[in-house]
């Protein structure tokens, strides 16, 4: 009989709901607030949520590719993996002025580029036979390929626009000299042609002036191939100046 009584009482248990209710009551009477749910139970869920938000924030705000825009204003559009502009950096006086006059943040890169090309400064330079260099730099090949194609479409109507791609290392080398990537490429070409021009001087000159200087140093009146191939396989847009040697920066990537 002992065991039967023990076993019968053993099967009587306090319900979880009753325990919770009691704890809430005691908390309310002793001034210690007890939430309706035990916060500890929600911790794993909150941690996952925080992780998702952090990862999303990181993916949104961290740049994964750069478009270097050079005409005379030199500026760079830093893009996130969704091709949105997360930062605009001016690399010379004109570039900084242009960057501050336009509100390009979180804009799609194509729209940002259109805004830049439509700006008074750039549009007047383009109308005055200015040369526009657009470089896509990044380690994500897929994104860079997509951006290069997009840039080529954007500048299809511009005869003097050159599009190409490069990698992160080259971008870092450019930045270490205080130059945007487009001007850095021209600087390297000028050094190769025997010029002793300084990065500072390059930074102050327009792409048209630099291009003219390259032509005179190479002793060639022609201005390059009609298509500027990118090292990454992308193809540039250029005006049709024939098949001359042209400056190497516009010939990069040619087989």
């Amino acid at each position: 009989m002992n065991e039967r009584i023990k076993s019968a009482f053993d099967s009587v248990k306090a319900e979880e709901e009753l325990k919770e209710k009691t704890l809430r009551y005691v908390s309310s009477r002793t001034g210690k607030r007890r939430p309706a749910f035990r916060a500890a139970r929600l911790l794993p869920l909150l941690a996952c949520l925080a992780l998702v938000i952090l990862a999303g924030g990181w993916a949104w705000f961290s740049p994964s590719a750069t478009i270097s825009v050079d005409i005379n204003p030199s500026l760079e559009l830093w893009l996130n993996r969704f091709d949105k502009v997360v930062q605009v950096v001016g690399w010379n006086e004109d570039g900084r002025e242009l960057a501050s006059s336009l509100d390009l943040k979180y804009m799609d890169y194509e729209q940002a580029l259109e805004e830049i090309m439509a700006s008074e400064k750039v549009s007047s330079l383009l109308a005055d036979d200015g040369v526009l260099s657009l470089a896509v730099v990044g380690d994500n090949e897929k994104q860079c390929g997509r951006l290069l194609t997009g840039l080529q479409q954007c500048t299809a109507g511009q005869g003097n626009a050159y599009c190409y791609s490069a990698d992160e290392e080259e971008l870092e080398a450019a930045h270490s000299l205080g130059l945007s990537y487009g001007k850095y490429r021209v600087y390297l070409e000028l050094l190769e042609l025997g010029s002793d021009i300084s990065p500072r001087e390059v930074n102050g000159m327009s792409m048209r002036e630099l291009r003219d200087m390259m032509e005179s140093l190479s002793g060639n009146g022609e201005t390059g191939s009609p298509q500027a191939h990118a090292p990454g396989g992308g193809q540039g847009q250029g005006q049709g100046y024939g098949q001359g040697k042209g400056p190497a920066w516009a010939r990069d990537g040619e087989g």
């Binding site: 306090a14 009753l18 009551y25 005691v26 002793t30």
Partner: peptide, 12 residues
Amino acid sequence: EDIFQTVFLKYA
């Protein structure tokens, strides 16, 4: 429920 509240409040 009343007894639970009384007993555990007394303990607290």
